[in-house]
C-alpha cells in the first residue's frame, strides 16, 4: 500500500499548497496592481520633487471627486471640481472634510485614478491621503493635495479623474465611539 500512501501524501501537500496559493494571490495582486497601475491604483507615497520642464503646449483636464464610505457621517468635497493643467507643472488644490460627529475620530482617504492606465502618470508630492487624519468632534478643515502630471502621459488621455473615498479608519470607528453615539 506504499504507492497509495505516497500518492495521498502528495495530493494532501498539493491541497495545502493551493490553500497557501490562495493567500499568496493577495500580495501578488498588490504587486501586479502597483506595477501596472491596474484598478486605478495610484501611489500612496510622495514622489520626490523633481523639476521637469512643463509641457505648456498641452492641457489636460483633471477632475476631482470625493465620496464617503457608508460607515460614518463626513462632509467631504473638493474645492474645485476640475482644473486644466499642463503636464510637468506642479499644482495645488484642496479638499474640505468635516467630522459631523461630536466625538474625535480618525479618518483615512483612499485615492483612485481613472482611467487606470493614467494612474502611474499621476504623481502626488503632498497629499492628505498619505497619513491618517485625526478630527476632533465637529472639526472641519481644508486638506491640500500637490500633484504633477507626468509629461509622458499617453497623448490620447485628455481627462484624468482623481477620486478619494473617505473612510473611518478600519475597525476603529465603532470601537472608539462612545456608546451614546451609537444609535
Amino acid at each position: 500500500m506504499s504507492a497509495t500512501r505516497t500518492m495521498v501524501l502528495k495530493l494532501v501537500a498539493l491541497t495545502a499548497a493551493m490553500f497557501g496559493f490562495g493567500f499568496l494571490l493577495v500580495p501578488l495582486y498588490e504587486v501586479f496592481c502597483d506595477i501596472t497601475g491596474l484598478g486605478g491604483r495610484t501611489s500612496n507615497e510622495a514622489v520626490a520633487e523633481v523639476t521637469i520642464a512643463p509641457d505648456t503646449d498641452r492641457l489636460v483636464r483633471v477632475e476631482f471627486m470625493a465620496s464617503v464610505n457608508s460607515n460614518g457621517p463626513w462632509e467631504f468635497r473638493p474645492e474645485v471640481s476640475s482644473m486644466m493643467v499642463h503636464p510637468g507643472q506642479m499644482y495645488t488644490t484642496t479638499y474640505w472634510a468635516r467630522n459631523m460627529r461630536e466625538f474625535d475620530i480618525v479618518g483615512h482617504a483612499v485615492p483612485s485614478v481613472a482611467p487606470g492606465t493614467a494612474a502611474r502618470y499621476f504623481n502626488k508630492t503632498e497629499c492628505f491621503c498619505f497619513t491618517e487624519q485625526k478630527f476632533e468632534g465637529l472639526e472641519g478643515r481644508d486638506m491640500p493635495v500637490v500633484f504633477i502630471i507626468d509629461p509622458d502621459l499617453p497623448a490620447h488621455v485628455q481627462t484624468v479623474t482623481l477620486s478619494y473615498t473617505f473612510f473611518d479608519r478600519a475597525g476603529v470607528a465603532s470601537a472608539a465611539a462612545p456608546p451614546s453615539a451609537l444609535q
Binding site: T15, A16, M18, F21, H108, R169
Partner: peptide, 25 residues
C-alpha cells in the same frame, strides 16, 4: 477548492478579526 476555502477564510477574518483583505479603508 482550497483557493475558495482561502477566499472565504479571508472574508471571515475581515468580518470578525479586523483584517482588511477586501476592505478599502
Amino acid at each position: 477548492m482550497p483557493v475558495l476555502a482561502g477566499a472565504v477564510t479571508m472574508l471571515l477574518t475581515d468580518k470578525y478579526f479586523g483584517t482588511a483583505f477586501f476592505t478599502a479603508a
